[in-house]
Write a protein that binds this DNA or RNA. Structure first.
Lengths: 363, 363
DNA sequence: CAGCCGACTGGAAACCTTTCCAGTCCGGAA
DNA sequence: TTCCGGACTGGAAAGGTTTCCAGTCGGCTG
């Protein structure tokens, strides 16, 4: 595979230098409620009542005010409203890494749902650094968000727990467990069910050494998957579980795979606990020319679009990330509307495929 | 491929119902600058000066104020600051679809860069609907963002152009061209270079019918790629270019492929203009059991992680989306700092691979 | 007919900061 | 000794809205 480089990197001349003339006089710039009031010949309080749909407003008043609003092209200053009302209609989304397809789909679901209720989404990446989790929470809190959606990098961090507690703001955890007695809503995936089905399938095929290469041990999905794997094998005395938690990275996937295959008793089946991990696993398997499913069976979690063309087809434990985001948003909206905290659990599906087959007979 | 469903969908009981006791008295709640001033026995203006690092402040004053700030755990109210200063230190990011890996990486680059300068990112998806582009711009404008990062769904929309013009706010276009004389910064990809190299490569292999299955014709990348393809073939009289613009969707990729292959003169090479389109193309090729590169050569744009395991390896026109986002953010920060508008062009790389081979001899 | 209530409106405080302006005090220069 | 400027500080306006409170007025009840 050869690589040709092309294109230059430069910064070209500006397209134009002149600022456009100040907008037509009717613009919103500098037009405040008092101008409207003056124009309509009424008090500011009346303007405010009309605009906020207050009940005690006569038709005549409404008409006069609306006319003035039209004429002046008045638009309320949201900052002043936020200050006065003490609410920003803004939600903070703290996420380990938005470039992860799983999380960006969650973000899409959340933002779409929130926007339907006139909330905006403030995005903060923590690049999987627990300190940034806490810092971002603090930062968004200072920006006075009305609520939080948290997909933390590390739920065990003291600082993060403190930061969450300090905010005293409605918070929805996304597939995370925070070890705190404070009430918190959450939307969770039922990882156990997916792993259980996958393991049943593998055991049914005759596998006796099943390895889970998992991500960070400091987040719920990893813990749940590990627990589910070990639990599922309690009834199968002959089958051994191996677990390799680490990080949700290609590097970990690759290193763990290498390590396992070099070990005395390599697994007959691997479950890759995330799409980046999968890449690492596949890379190492390819480098060793290990054939799936002939030499090793493979299951992955949280598929990505192109996975469907992988040969052989990959068995996958799926969930619906858009729906997770949407649900998280709904839970938050409910809380902001005064409802109690609530935990929603969303299902997981296991799709068997030809990447799983009976293990090779023992050599 | 069988599918077992597992897991239940439910909403479980809340974890707790009691609110935690109001935080210790020193909390920021209700603590304003005037409390600090009173506690320190100075005027509010002095507190403000100390906190904003104004020059004319005595050491004694600074110490007293800071002590009071510490004791009260005072945190400034950013909403009041925003209102007073008329700046929010917030940037609006309008994007067709954040769940697209290309765009989510751009978002990551942008957010990371912006946060380093204390700006926050307000995210708005337009789900590829031009009306929502305009609406989101308007919405974010009302929220008084200091600047815009725009990855529009349709740069030809009147409403969008008007919305942009109306805001009179520093704006960076991301790989888009807005037909307006207003000055606008932009970060662009040099698609032409990538396409040119790819076409040279294909022509070198002997291809005579090269098809570009492109995305929406209403955005710059599509136009640039089409132009580049046609231009590149001007010097190769025997080679025919076909172009199938449509949408950045799997459906379009699949339909266009079907259409082409059913046509009288099917292409010998296809360039898929995006990762979703690629999925559609591959699906149709797989359904017809068309072998790459034996029956058809394939090039794709904007790869995704798993693409590297596709067999055969996919020739790809790449760019660095994180860097695009970071560059866009830098351009915006510069504009916010008073600099003139500027256009940055980032390179594109073509990587040849075994998905391209000489075409089958004519039947 | 007095009294009262309800519908409606205006005035002003409150939200919290930044910034302009004026004023105090002191040291140094004339 | 007087004047001036610089260093520093306090007061108050401004930024734009929401909301409480008080007040007016017409109509209805007793």
């Amino acid at each position: 595979m050869s690589t040709e480089s092309s294109g230059q990197r430069n910064t070209a001349a500006p397209r134009s230098r002149t600022r456009p003339a100040r907008k037509s006089a009717a613009a919103s710039a500098g037009t405040g409620m008092s101008q409207v009031a003056e124009r309509a010949g009424v008090a500011m309080s009346s303007v405010s009542r009309v605009l906020s749909g207050h009940a005690d407003v006569s038709e005549a008043m409404r008409a006069r005010v609306m006319a003035a609003v039209e004429e002046l092209g008045y638009q309320p200053n949201m900052l002043a409203q936020m200050l006065r009302r003490g609410a920003t209609r803004t939600v903070g989304f703290v996420v380990g890494d938005i470039s992860n397809p799983l999380l960006s789909q969650i973000a899409l679901g959340a933002e779409t749902t929130l926007r339907a209720s006139d909330y905006a989404l403030l995005l903060a990446n923590s690049v999987n650094d627990p300190r940034l989790d806490a810092e971002n929470i603090q930062l968004l809190h200072q920006r006075r968000v009305d609520g939080f959606l948290l997909s933390l990098s590390d739920e065990t961090s003291e600082q993060t727990a403190e930061a969450v507690a300090r905010t005293d703001t409605p918070t929805i955890l996304i597939d995370r467990d925070l070890p705190t007695r404070a009430p918190t809503s959450a939307v969770l995936s039922d990882h156990r069910a997916g792993i259980t089905r996958a393991v049943e399938h593998l055991v049914g095929l005759g596998h006796e050494r099943i390895t889970l290469i998992a991500g960070s041990p400091h987040v719920r999905p990893t813990r749940e998957r590990i627990d589910a794997l070990e639990e599922a094998l309690e009834d199968s005395p002959g089958v051994v579980a191996q677990v390799r938690p680490g990080a949700f990275t290609e590097a970990h996937g690759r290193a763990a795979t290498r390590d396992l295959l070099d070990g005395r008793r390599p697994p007959t089946a691997i479950i890759a606990g995330g799409n980046q991990i999968l890449v690492g696993v596949l890379a190492e398997l390819a480098a060793r020319e290990i054939r799936i499913p002939h030499d090793l069976s493979l299951v992955t979690c949280d598929d990505v679009p192109l996975a469907q063309f992988f040969t052989p087809a990959l068995a996958t434990i799926r969930r619906d990330p858009y729906e997770m985001g949407a649900t998280a948003a709904r839970l938050l909206l409910a809380r902001l509307g005064g409802a109690a905290d609530e935990v929603a659990t969303l299902p997981t599906q296991f799709s068997a495929a030809s990447s799983c087959a009976p293990p090779r007979p023992r050599q």
